[in-house]
Each structure stands twice: as C-alpha cells, then as structure tokens.
Design a protein around this nucleic acid. Sequence first.
DNA 1: GAGGCATATGCAAAGAGTTGCATAATCTAA
DNA 2: TTAGATTATGCAACTCTTTGCATATGCCTC
Lengths: 188, 188
Amino acid sequence: MALNHAIMTALLDDRLSGYELTKSFDTSLGFFWKASHQQIYKALRDLEKQGLLESEDVPQAGKPDKVIYGLTAAGREALEQWVLGDSRVTESKDDMFVKFYNLSPNNAPHLLQELVERREQDGMRLALYQRIKERHYTEPGALPVRKRGIYLALLAGIRHCETRLAWAREAEALLQGVMAEAVSAANS
Amino acid sequence: MALNHAIMTALLDDRLSGYELTKSFDTSLGFFWKASHQQIYKALRDLEKQGLLESEDVPQAGKPDKVIYGLTAAGREALEQWVLGDSRVTESKDDMFVKFYNLSPNNAPHLLQELVERREQDGMRLALYQRIKERHYTEPGALPVRKRGIYLALLAGIRHCETRLAWAREAEALLQGVMAEAVSAANS
DNA sequence: GAGGCATATGCAAAGAGTTGCATAATCTAA
DNA sequence: TTAGATTATGCAACTCTTTGCATATGCCTC
C-alpha cells in the first residue's frame, strides 16, 4: 500500500499532524496521490503501531489540540527499501472520457460544460504548480538531490496540466462543431 | 459506479462476451478504464439482473462455449441518462512519482530503470493508438458524431503518452546527472 | 448569543478493486 | 503424450477507498 509510503514521504522533512497532512495531500503530493482525512488518520495510527512513526501531543491555544507525527529511524529505513521495490500504477479513471465514447448532438452541450469546468480546474492547478516552480525550483541543477526529484514530479504535473488544457481547447472546438451541425440540420 | 457504464459503452456497437470485453478493456477503452476479468464477469451478471443487458449462449467449435451480452433498450436509455450526469474523476495513483520525492544517489539507478520500463510501455501504447488513429480517424471532421467523440478520447490518450515520453527523457537526463555527480564525489 | 467557519480527530458501513485460486475445453509444439 | 498456451468463466478473501455520520474547540460576525 503506497498511501502509507506517501504519508511517510510527506513526513521526510516535517513533523505534521493528520490535519496538516490532509491539506498537503490536497496540493503538492496530492497530484500523485489523493487521500481523505479518514484514510490518513487511520494510516497514521497504523504506522505508529508498526513503529515507523512516532507521535507527540501538541496542546494549542485558540484551536483544538493536535497530534503531530514524525518518522522514526525504522520508518526512514522502511521508506528507503520501498523506493527500491517495483512500482504499482493505478491508472486514472475518468468518467468524462468514457462519456466521449457516447457523444451525440443530444449530450454535446453537457460534455462541453464539463469540459469547461475541467479546463478551469486544470488551469488553477497549473497556475499553482507554476508558482511553486518559479518560487522554489528555478534552477533545478543547483538544487540538492532530493529536491531535484521533487522538481521532476512537479514538472510532470505541469506538463500533464498543459497537455490536458490544449486537448480541452481542441475538444471544445469539435463539440461546438457538432452542436452547430445539429442546429443547421434542424433548420433545414 | 462507472465500470458498469464503461461496459455498456463498449457494448454500444457490438455484442461481446466477458472474455472479449476483458481484452477490449486492455486496449482502447482501457486507457480510460481498467478492469479485471473478475470484475467484468460480475458486472455483466449484475447488469443483466437489472435488465440493462441481455445475454445469449453461443456454442463454439474448437473453443469453449461463450455467453455474449448486448444492451437492452433500457440499457441504452440508462447509459444516455448517465452521460448527462456529473463525472467522477479518480486521479491516477502512481508509486513512481511518490518515489521521486525520495530521490537520492542511492536509489537513482533503480528509478532510472523504472523510468526506462515506463518509457517502453508508453512507447508501445502510443504506437498502438497512432496506428488506430491512422487507420480509422484520419479525417475526424468527416466521421459520424459518436466516432468524433471516440477520436477525441483517442487524441487525449496520444497526447498523454507523448507528454509522458518527453518528460521521461528529461527525467532520465537528470537522473544520469545525479549518478555522475555521485561517482565523481566518491572519487574525490 | 446564535450560526457559520476553520481546526482537529474519529467510527462504521458500503462500495470498488486486487489477488489467489479453481475449472474446463481445445489447440500447438516438443 | 504430455506440457503449455489460449479461450472462457467463476468464487472468495482481502485491501483500499468513499461516504455518511459524529464530536469538540474556538474564532468571527450578525
């Protein structure tokens, strides 16, 4: 299970609470691994039981107390070993592409609308990643080794968003063509 | 659950057996939805129980008999309705990208090897999709409407593969740099 | 001071997907 | 003729993920 390893990866540099991890899974690492807070809290408890994480209660003023977790030596070791093993890919599943196999003049307007929403989401994500890149990764060759790995992951995210945006523009044009044809066919 | 709808989509034009569906989920539709034969056979039985598919036993010579499934009128109707609803995205999960967050001179050779394997897989898939495109989708504007939707999905697959291949080349160069540095550091 | 929001954590059930195993017919090649 | 590949279907256990619900603190605003 890589959720555990994704969590440990997020804890490489920082000691974080479940809540903070949940938020970070919504942004940077989240492009490659999504998880709900229920999953994360459970995984944290499991990992602590296995001795790969250690926790500390942190009382807070003005907010509920929290529990922060950090990697143990055993955790770092386990993570290193995991990296050397085979990777598992769970291909993304996206209803929208399946829906395109069902394209008709009837559903084209709906698909166009979904496409516009996607484009907005991808655009925001791309902007976020580009901000991060410009702020922290302008000179990848000068970065410490591990940061260069993160840079590559970030770059993959950026390229992916760009590709989807370009595709969406083409798809929108084609859908508009389908709709225009349907209108002129109805008028003749 | 969109697996059901992906199966129904695959049955829009053809009546197929579970075995044939399993294979088709390995290729064209499979870029957007992966499923094991166990999942598919179960889904087929469920969909038939719901009256969305109908089945027919087909005795075969030289091979075991098979059961082929086709959409019922209710199935076509349900599929059309599904297309008009909201789409769900399950972002892809890929160990390899998480591993890049753990990059070190120690694991760089392993990641390089995984990268090469990926590049080969993506290359083969890209070649497959390009063959399909050239054979059936050379003039998208001239295609019937639904085929144009399939063309767009295919195009998304092609673009995606191309992007990953380009990224993999960059990533390989960077990893080789990391490894070269490690060697020269050890020699000094 | 009541309602809404952000912080912070958790349980339980249901749904989706993976993994391992099992069966059986037929064809092909050693 | 026996071993392995291909076609064809299925069960059961397990893991992973989603969804719905629950609780509690403390802030800010109306």
